[in-house]
């Protein structure tokens, strides 16, 4: 119940004070799953793309971190290149998660990671290596994927 209540509260706060380029959608019957649409930021390889991200709140939320899952395929060192599209770094890591962390902070963090990947905390090591050693190639591939998978 606590998870439900907190999630509603978070939603209200985000509705009152929305984040640029981030839309939140949800099913009234299931407040523990949010469907989020993020618009790729300008001057990043994700520009022009629209990325769908599901946020699932575990039953013991906010004592456990929300689970993030990209439904749109994305070429990024910190997002797993599988059917889960999971993102788990920084404040989202189980040992770093604090129950007082608000969803505004989480979503702002996601936006920031999309702009500035963290190759040292990569989940996709090969992409991270490319990002560091051959950034041109990385940007090219990330743009291709955006075009292929993230165009509306």
């Amino acid at each position: 119940m606590a998870a439900q209540k907190r999630s509603i509260k978070e939603l209200t706060m985000l509705n009152n004070d929305p984040i640029d380029g981030v839309e939140i959608d949800h099913d009234d019957k299931d407040m523990l799953t949010w469907k989020i649409t993020i618009t790729g930021l300008e001057e990043t390889p994700y520009e022009g793309g629209t990325f769908i991200l599901h946020v699932t709140f575990p039953n013991d939320y906010p004592f456990k971190a929300p689970v993030l899952s990209f439904k749109t395929k994305i070429y990024h060192p910190n997002i797993s290149n599988d059917d889960k599209g999971s993102m788990c770094l920084g404040l989202l890591r189980p040992d770093s998660w604090k129950p007082s962390t608000r969803m505004t902070t989480v979503l702002a963090f996601v936006k920031q990671i999309l702009t500035t990947p963290e190759p040292d905390e990569a989940i996709e090591v090969n992409i991270a290596k490319e990002f560091k050693d051959n950034n041109k190639e990385f940007t090219k591939k990330a743009k291709e994927w955006t075009k292929k998978y993230a165009k509306r």
Binding site: D60, F63, K64, L91, K98, S100, T101
Partner: peptide, 20 residues
């Protein structure tokens, strides 16, 4: 919060204040 940290995560010496 403390119960989650201790029981689920096996954390002890480095449990911090719940604030980000």
């Amino acid at each position: 919060y403390l119960a989650t940290k201790i029981q689920d995560e096996g954390e002890a010496a480095r449990i911090q204040c719940p604030t980000q």
